[in-house]
Amino acid sequence: MASETVAPIEPKPLLAAWSLCQREIVRFLRQRNRIIGAIGQPLLFWLLFGAGMSRTFQLPGAATSAGVSFLEYYFSGTLMLIVLFTAIFATISIIEDRNEGFLQSVLAAPIPRWSMVLGKVMGGALLATLQGVLFLLLALTLKVNLGPLNFLVMAVFLLIVGIGLTSLGFLLAWRMESTQGFHAVMNLLLMPLWLLSGAFFPVPWINAQSPWSQVVMHWVMRLNPVTYAIASLREIMYWGMGDDAPLPGRGLPVEAYWSPSPVTGVVVTIAFAALMLGWACWAAAEPRSGDA
């Protein structure tokens, strides 16, 4: 009775990616501590730093302006930290998938590797967006004023940032055998990436008289892709406020801190996400003996 052996199936890469993406979200929602870890710490930092630094924090050249409170300045940085944490947790799971055996059934399936990468990255990015939005809602009840359109654009932008950071995390985690190794990378690379993005302190403005250390700091931060995401988040936050917006060259003096133009910020962020996603797909494409 060989009639049961029907024609071979037709693989659907996007269906597989969507299913893997859903899996990320379902798994996340079943692990409550991950939600608390990813949103709780940044929120706590925001409130504590916001309260603690409010007296000492002052933007250069902004002494006379009504200025920006640290709580307000640090807001976009907190949002970025949430996205970063969520993206990191999502990509650590690729190491777990490999160690627990789940990954081998995905790799043996008739789907291209990019569909697996896309599922993982979209899952991570959606989770990051979801958490970011949750934080935005919380923040709305506190001090932050955000219009509905700004809110919406912010959510879309967070998704793009999330794609970039999850893809970066995937690249780092793909060849790793233990989650301990990932923590080392996180401390050495990912946290500095965030710290030197203008999230916590502004990119220094430089001129001919600036000391060399300031110049180095300026360029390190200027070459950091996350800087452009942070700048864009600020831009979106104050979008529609015109010249009153507390941004350099508008409500604040130009030399308050360095910031890329709005267009540059968005373009760099999108380009970074595309580049990282493409790279991750490429890196995972070829089977090697250590894959699963």
């Binding site: 037709e10 299913s19 379902v26 399936a109």
Partner: peptide
């Protein structure tokens, strides 16, 4: 190769999707 955090049915659904 089962995902322990998913139900049996969810694991099966995952496999379905991988095979189109």
């Amino acid at each position: 190769s089962l995902d322990k955090k998913l139900t049996v049915a969810e694991n099966m659904r995952q496999q379905s999707a991988l095979y189109g």
